[in-house]
Design a binder for these strands. Structure first.
Length: 430
RNA sequence: GGAGGGGUGACCGAGCGGCCGAAGGUGCGGCACUGGAAAUGCCGUGCACGGGCGAACCCUGUGCCGUGGGUUCAAAUCCCACCCCCUCCGCCA
């Protein structure tokens, strides 16, 4: 949620900053409505003050046993007028809120210019892609030939873009998730949470999923009640909703949370895109990272969050690169963000495996997450950050493709040994 | 699913439609007392939004007693709807 006060104070700055993101003309409309709103608030407040004074006088008169019929009659009109004003105010508020909700966050001044992911800037890379003595094959071929990745049966019982993982591959998936969680909780200072995977519409609204991404969500209904619940598209949703409407002590910041959860996405409008294998699925697992910090802490916390996610890949010895997203590729709420892309031998390029974003106070304002310093004083909105640490399905892809052997088997990364109960290699199921 | 009870400030808990932003207690902060502490005493102790010069302190207006409506000159208090919690019974991983 954009800060209307900033918009009031420096409209030109905001217009200029949003030129690339296409939100500039909104500024003037919002300012006009905001002006109207404040005038109305003032008028209504004045009338209410008058009403309160008059009510007090009426009360006193009644206590003295005097007749206050005339005053009461006069006050009735004031009450009616207040009711009208409050009604108008509600309309104005809705309109204003709707408009403000359309204003995207301001990009951090350091964000590189650009219009699409083609303009993203590589900031570093790690690892050297392995030399294969053969032509490396895509993960879906490896998985299916090993009899461990089963897409046809999944499509039969559900629909396309669902998967079944057999035996050791399922175990690999579980091992990866546990490895990531242990890393983040034991070494990176995150607290693990287990959360609802279905949430109500209001939570979806306030986490920015609705109404914009309604067609990307799976929706459920309790059988005999009308209530709608949505399957989460990422644990970011319940994780960032955790402290909505709370004021946190500044000393408790930054807070670092992680959660492992399945993610459900309809992926409407992406048919024909990424249809091979399990790169883009309706259901996948992810270890999510969320931070709540002061705005001053947020920049450093973004850097450490990216490093936390990179550490997963370094431990797994998977080559990757980090790109900073350009202005045009930043999400609506993001002020600054990085993508981590892992090496895909079968494709001969890097593909996305994590995305880390700093929402700044924009995120805190939307969820009304505040903090107050020990010294007291006014509360301020927290900055929120989130990132994947990592998407498990895509990590499986990277392991299969980078660790494949000429005979079609797949060696397991040494870092996973404690989680695999002796499994060192994926081989064909008999 | 059936029957009943309840949601008030950080916590417990009172509250006849006006004198209630809300008694009392606990907690917390300060001061006094003490060699120091405990105990005790005194004082203080909500949030949001707007205005006063959007620096601070401060002053001031409005709103907030689960949420949203309604009745009324006036609602924590009356009415309606919804949400949540608790107890008992039933069912159940």
């Amino acid at each position: 949620m954009f800060d209307v006060r900033l918009l009031r104070a420096e409209p030109e700055t905001v217009e200029r900053a949003l030129a690339d993101k296409g939100g500039a003309e909104l500024v003037r409309r919002v300012l006009a409505i905001d002006e109207r709103r404040r005038a109305r608030v003032r008028e209504a407040d004045d009338l209410k003050a008058q009403r309160n004074r008059a009510s007090e006088l009426i009360a006193q008169a009644k206590r003295r046993g005097e007749d206050a019929a005339a005053d009461i009659a006069r006050q009735r009109e004031v009450g009616d007028r207040i009711k009208v004003l409050d009604g108008e105010l509600r309309t104005i508020d809705d309109e204003l809120e709707g408009l403000v909700a359309e204003i995207p966050n301001l990009p951090h001044p350091s964000v590189p210019p650009g219009t699409s992911d083609a303009d993203n800037v590589e900031v570093r890379s790690w690892g050297t892609p392995r030399e294969f003595g053969f032509v490396p094959r895509p993960h879906e071929e490896l998985g299916e030939e090993l009899g461990l990745l089963d897409l046809p049966r999944a499509a039969r019982m559900a629909k396309a873009r669902f998967a079944i993982m057999w035996g050791p591959l399922a175990r690999l998936s579980r091992a990866l998730a546990q490895f990531m969680l242990d890393l983040h909780t034991r070494e990176h200072g995150y607290t693990e949470l287990w959360l609802p995977q279905l949430v109500n519409g209001e939570t979806m609204l306030r986490t920015g999923q609705l109404p914009k991404f309604e067609e990307q969500l799976f929706k459920t209904q309790e059988a005999d009640e009308g209530r709608t619940l949505y399957l989460i598209p990422t644990a970011e949703v319940p994780l960032s909703a955790l402290h909505f409407d709370e004021t946190l002590p500044e000393a408790s910041l930054p807070r670092r949370y992680t959660a492992y959860s399945p993610c459900y996405r309809r992926e409407a409008g992406t048919y024909g895109k990424d249809m091979k294998g399990i790169y883009r699925q309706h259901q996948f697992d992810k270890v999510e990272l969320v931070k709540i910090a002061t705005p001053e802490q947020a920049d450093a916390e973004l850097e450490s969050m990216v490093d936390n996610a990179e550490t997963v890949l370094r431990r797994l010895e998977l080559p990757y690169r980090v790109v900073e997203r350009c202005v045009g590729d930043l999400g609506f709420s993001t002020t600054r963000g990085y993508d981590i892309e892992v090496w895909r031998p079968a494709l001969g390029k890097y593909t996305e495996i994590s995305s880390c974003s700093n929402y700044g106070a924009f995120g805190g304002r939307r969820g009304k997450i505040r903090y107050r310093s020990a010294a007291g004083g006014r509360s301020e909105f927290c900055a929120t950050l989130n990132g994947s640490g990592l998407a498990v399905g895509r990590t499986i892809i990277a392991v299969l493709e980078n660790y494949q052997e000429a005979d079609g088997t797949v060696t397991m990364p040494p870092a996973l040994a404690p989680y695999l109960n002796g499994l060192e290699r994926l081989t064909a199921e008999r």
